[in-house]
Simulated scan of single mutants.
Amino acid sequence: MRFSMISLSALMLASAATPAFADDAPTAPPPAITINGSATVVSDYRFRGVSQTDKNVAIQGSITLTHESGLYVSVWGSSVDSYVTASQAGHQEVDIIGGYKKTWNGTTFDVGVLYYVYPKTKFLPGDMSSSNFFEPYFDISHTFGPVTAKATVNYAPKQKALALDQGFFSGSSAKEDNVYLAGDFSAAIPHTPVGLTAHIGHTWGPSWLATDATGSTEYTDWGLGATYTWKSLTFGVSYVDTDADFRDAYTNGKISNAGVVGTIGVSF
């Protein structure tokens, strides 16, 4: 699951902009299960600073079912290119997520598991590659006035899909694991529909997610962004960069250098 700065800021702004009114009329209890969704167009799908679409446009969407207990399940999808799937036939990513989220004394804890699925990734008949992998995660966030700070750790245990050749040349290729640690900050400008975001993260390998063209097995990504919310629409722009050198396997173009990403999203 790739939670975007757009969705984070939209949620924060919606809560900040909602006025409190006294109302003595009885209200119906909230439903035990709520359903939320989103649809988004991005000028470039960046995952931990690295373009997943060779710097082209991506269409994304999600739907989430949340129980009043804090348990939730979600499905998120995006278009991707052959850098991610290692096959010219596969152009989709589907993330299946299950977790538990709860807030105590203003601090929110979120723990769960992500399963990344890439349909049609077999390059040739009989190849033994593996693209799908799972990744448990944990994050903690707290709001200080208009500012929300969040720390996240994702750990993908050793799996064939994280091997440097992803099992393409041999079904017995060495499995690898990966760790990602990130900090995110968001701020709502009071009495305006504008939000600001900041992000920094670091990836440790060796794994397919962390090893770049220079052979480095770790890298840092960072970004700064702003959002503007109008009704159910959120417009965003962000500057994203890394200190890595990832290359597209087919074009050899660098896909981890600095770039500006634009976003238009709708929530329902």
Rank of each mutant, 00 (worst) to 15 (best):
R2E: 13
S4K: 02
S4C: 02
L8V: 08
L13S: 07
L13V: 01
D23M: 01
D24G: 06
T27D: 12
T27L: 14
A28F: 11
P30M: 09
I33M: 13
G37E: 11
A39L: 14
V41C: 01
Y45K: 04
Y45I: 02
R46I: 00
F47H: 11
G49H: 03
K55F: 04
I63L: 09
T66A: 13
H67S: 11
S69N: 14
Y72A: 08
S74F: 00
W76Y: 15
S79W: 01
S79H: 05
V80K: 04
S82Y: 01
S87W: 05
S87P: 13
E93A: 11
V94G: 03
D95K: 11
T103S: 14
T103Q: 10
G106W: 07
T107I: 15
F109R: 05
F109K: 04
F109T: 14
Y115H: 15
Y116N: 09
V117H: 14
P125W: 13
G126I: 08
G126W: 09
D127N: 15
S130H: 11
S130A: 13
F138Y: 12
D139F: 08
I140P: 06
H142I: 09
F144I: 11
P146T: 10
P146Y: 08
A149C: 04
K150A: 12
Y155D: 00
A156H: 10
K158G: 12
Q159A: 06
K160I: 03
K160R: 15
D165T: 05
D165M: 08
D165H: 07
Q166H: 13
G171S: 14
K175I: 00
E176C: 09
D177Q: 12
D177Y: 05
D177C: 05
V179K: 09
Y180M: 07
A188S: 13
G195Y: 02
L196A: 05
A198K: 01
G201K: 01
H202L: 03
T203N: 11
G205C: 05
G205I: 09
P206M: 00
S207F: 03
W208C: 00
A210W: 03
T214S: 13
T214N: 15
T217S: 15
E218K: 12
Y219Q: 08
D221W: 02
W222V: 04
G223Q: 07
L224Y: 09
K231L: 07
T234Y: 01
F235Y: 13
F235L: 15
G236L: 04
F246Q: 07
R247N: 05
R247P: 03
R247T: 12
A249W: 06
Y250E: 14
K254F: 01
I255H: 07
S256F: 00
G259I: 01
T263W: 00
I264G: 02
S267T: 15
F268V: 06
